[in-house]
Write a protein that binds this DNA or RNA. Structure first.
Lengths: 145, 145
DNA sequence: GCTCCGTTGAAAATGAATTTCAATTTAATC
DNA sequence: GATTAAATTGAAATTCATTTTCAACGGAGC
């Protein structure tokens, strides 16, 4: 199962860095994987509080940072002022469609676009490391309301 | 001249909104147009202070907000934690190449990419309003160092 | 000039992200 | 299981950019 694999990955990372495995870290990873993507620190914190009211915001924040350091999560900004974290499968990449009305986020990937990006970068003398593509608009549901 | 046109545009906008034309607003627009794009509030504020030491940060901030309301400037985030404003020619659009080493920002546009974006959005039921495409990498200069 | 009302600038407030620090917990070692 | 060194936790404080407040000021119509 994917989640179990990710959990092991995380433990390995902690071990390798001389960091410790704690009940909070396990709980946060568990909930992060369960909750689905694009959560803000605040949102994850509130969800966690329901299960473990004594957990601290700082711990959630630090643990999410750990996740992104070890490649389990990626930090993103979609323009509402909060950072959001999404679980990332290794070696995969996708971009986002964001509904400006309801906030829905849809993931997509398109190799043709990626190819053109490389082309453009190359002709400007750049070697691309990463990119960000976000399409903002109105989703089907919101348009038919 | 383009700058003069933009200045008139701004005055018209102020008039239309029942807002006032002030020496600060003129000065800020002047310097904004002179300074070239992708400035943060802080950077523009510091430049302005050299010419008019009594100008306030809040005024610069509010005026930049005005610019983006009336279509003279666009607000962007490139991931360094500060908003940046760029002068925008009407009906034009471009994307950005950002060097992760030296911070250089290069603008580009590619209709082929735009077309594919529309395609993707459409097939997901979205009507695009705007998009953001940023390519992060290493520029020629930084790679040859 | 007078008056109304928008603007300014300094300071305070906000909001998210991050850091501090004393108390606690982990995990390696005895 | 006890000891110990080092990492972690959570509450509170801090930081940093952004935004708002408010009293003094200034623009524009009368």
């Amino acid at each position: 199962m994917l989640k179990a694999k990710t959990k092991n990955e995380f433990k390995d990372y902690l071990l390798a860095q001389g960091l410790k495995s704690t009940s909070q870290r396990e709980l946060i990873l568990e909930e992060f994987l369960r909750a689905g993507s694009h959560l803000s620190t605040e949102e994850l914190y509130l969800r966690l509080r329901k299960k473990q009211p004594r957990i601290g915001y700082a711990t959630v924040h630090r643990t999410l940072k750990l996740f992104s350091e070890c490649g389990i999560a990626e930090r993103r900004h979609f323009g509402d002022g909060q950072a959001r974290y999404e679980a990332c499968a290794r070696d995969e990449h996708h971009d986002h469609l964001i509904c400006v009305d309801c906030g829905k986020i849809v993931e997509f990937e398109d190799p043709r676009i990626e190819k053109l990006q490389d082309e453009v970068a190359c002709s400007n003398g750049f070697a691309i490391e990463r990119h960000r593509l976000e399409l903002y608009g109105h989703c089907q549901d919101c348009r038919s309301k």
